[in-house]
Simulated scan of single mutants.
Amino acid sequence: MVSLTPTARLITLFTPALLLLLAMPAQARWQQQDWDVMGTRASVTLWSEQDAAPLFDALKEEMARLNALLSPWVESSELARVNAHAGETTQTISVEFYQLLARSLDYYQLTDGAFDITFASAGHLYDYREGKAPNDTQLAAANQHIGADRIELTAPDKVRFRDPGTRIDLGGIAKGYAIDQGIALLKEAGVEHAYLSLGGDSYVLGDHRGRPWEVGIQHPRSKQDIAMKLPMADLAMSTSGDYQRYFIQDGRRIHHILSPKTGKSIDGLASVTVLCDNSIDADALSTSVFVLGADKGLALINRLPETSAIIIDREGNVTYSNDLTGG
């Protein structure tokens, strides 16, 4: 019989426990990260037993990819190429880009033209950083090129513009799509509780470990204040507001949500929040309701299943869709 030294016995005694400890995952905890992308601030908070750094990197990579695909300010983006050449010759595009264009045209029809990605035909004339807006003559010329019926799609990967002066911008749908892509990535990784936001768009995955998430709607006239908090779980939220990109000119608020009919900023509302099952729809609908106005916008929302809206006008009055009031 082989005798063990005291040291050897001590190691033998504790080896199973040490192996078990090494095999156990890291202690589950909330992990969070912020970064800048797509012209705004992205933020993610999630519950995981593992180090979430690889997941954060994957989210950053996916959103950077979408920015490179959809940004009008990146010269090599697919959107920039289409704007530059689709008015001259038919362009071959990725299936992903084609599907986003098709989805945008569906919303053009659903909203009677309120959601119109060709607003960019006038929108590119605004410079919100420099506080510059086009004059009436410039707008009148640009408005002749607005109208999504000028976009011709041929499945599965072709697009052309019937009007060479037409431009598009997917700003009313791109961030919502990016959120949905990010949530799909988190689900694939097994994450069950998370909050992902990108500017005014967000999605809560699961609950907050036994209680709802509380997501705030920014006060449209105070960056530091919250207008109201909403309890949420497994739900998308998008807020469109006249405070996100704007400047004041001759006493008028010039902001980025433009009327497809006039090419000018929409007056009347300060904030529209839409809640539904996915972020791409919430994003498109919050823009659409803002353009339609409170009455027509709520009439649209009240026709759609599992969709809610909260509207704040410039006087601070709050209006809700029927499902939130019991109507």
Results as ranks from 00 to 15, higher is better:
Leu185Phe: 05
Arg252Ala: 11
Arg167Thr: 10
Asp116Phe: 03
Ile248Met: 13
Gly147Phe: 02
Val44Leu: 12
Asn278Ile: 08
Leu105Asp: 00
Arg129Gly: 15
Leu185Met: 08
Leu22Ala: 12
Asp51Ala: 12
His193Thr: 10
Ala28Trp: 08
Thr137Gln: 14
Gln99Ser: 13
Gly172Phe: 02
Pro305Thr: 01
Ser3Thr: 09
Ala8Arg: 12
Met228Ser: 04
His256Ile: 06
Gly182Lys: 06
Ala86Ser: 13
Thr40Ala: 06
Ser271Pro: 01
Lys223Glu: 14
Ala233Cys: 07
Val204Pro: 02
Ile226Val: 15
Ala140Glu: 15
Gly147Met: 05
Gly87Asn: 10
Ser121Phe: 05
Gln109Ala: 14
Asp225Phe: 05
Asn302Ser: 06
Thr92Leu: 13
His193Ala: 14
Asp323Arg: 11
Asp163Ile: 08
Phe119Asp: 02
Tyr246Pro: 00
Ile146Met: 10
Asp277His: 14
Gln99Ile: 00
Leu69Met: 14
Thr40Val: 07
Phe247Pro: 09
Arg129Thr: 15
Ile310His: 03
Asn67Ser: 13
Ala140Met: 07
Gln27Gly: 02
Pro72Glu: 05
Ala141Gln: 13
Asp250Gln: 15
Gly113Pro: 02
Asp169Trp: 05
Leu198Lys: 07
Pro156Ser: 11
Ser121His: 08
Leu79Arg: 00
Arg209Leu: 15
Val37Ala: 14
Leu125Val: 10
Gly216Phe: 01
Ala122Asn: 03
Ile93Tyr: 03
Ala42Thr: 00
Asp242Met: 11
Leu292Thr: 03
Asp112Arg: 11
Ala53Lys: 12
Leu185Arg: 04
Lys261Leu: 13
Asp207Gly: 14
Ala184Leu: 10
Val95Lys: 13
Leu292Cys: 03
Asp242Glu: 07
Ala174Thr: 01
Leu258Thr: 06
Asp169Gly: 04
Leu125Trp: 04
Leu230Thr: 07
Ser271Cys: 11
Ala120Gln: 12
Gly297Ala: 04
Thr325Glu: 15
Pro54Gly: 11
His85Asn: 10
Leu18His: 02
Gly216Asn: 08
Met1His: 09
Asn322His: 13
Pro16His: 08
Asn322Asp: 15
Met237Lys: 09
Lys187Trp: 01
Asn83Ser: 08
Leu300Lys: 00
Asn317Thr: 09
Arg303Trp: 00
Gln32Ala: 12
Lys132Val: 15
Leu46Arg: 11
Val204His: 01
Asn83Ile: 03
Glu188Trp: 00
Gly165Cys: 01
Tyr108Val: 03
Ser202Cys: 13
Glu96Lys: 03
Ser197Trp: 04
Gly176Thr: 05
Ala194Phe: 07
Arg314Leu: 06
Leu205Met: 08
Ala140Thr: 14
Phe14Cys: 05
Leu235Tyr: 03
Leu153Ala: 07
Gly165Met: 04
Tyr246Ser: 11
Tyr177Gly: 02
Asp323Lys: 12
Ala194Leu: 11
Arg253Tyr: 03
Ala148Tyr: 01
Ile266Ser: 01
Lys187Gly: 00
Asp51Tyr: 08
Leu196Asp: 03
Val274Thr: 10
Gln244Pro: 00
Asp169Ser: 12
Glu75Phe: 04
Thr287Trp: 00
Asn278Met: 01
Tyr107Phe: 12
Thr89Phe: 10
Val74Ser: 10
Leu110Asp: 01
Thr262Asp: 06
Thr262Glu: 06
Gln218Gly: 14
Ser265Val: 02
Thr45Trp: 07
Val95Cys: 03
Ile226Tyr: 09
Asp136Arg: 12
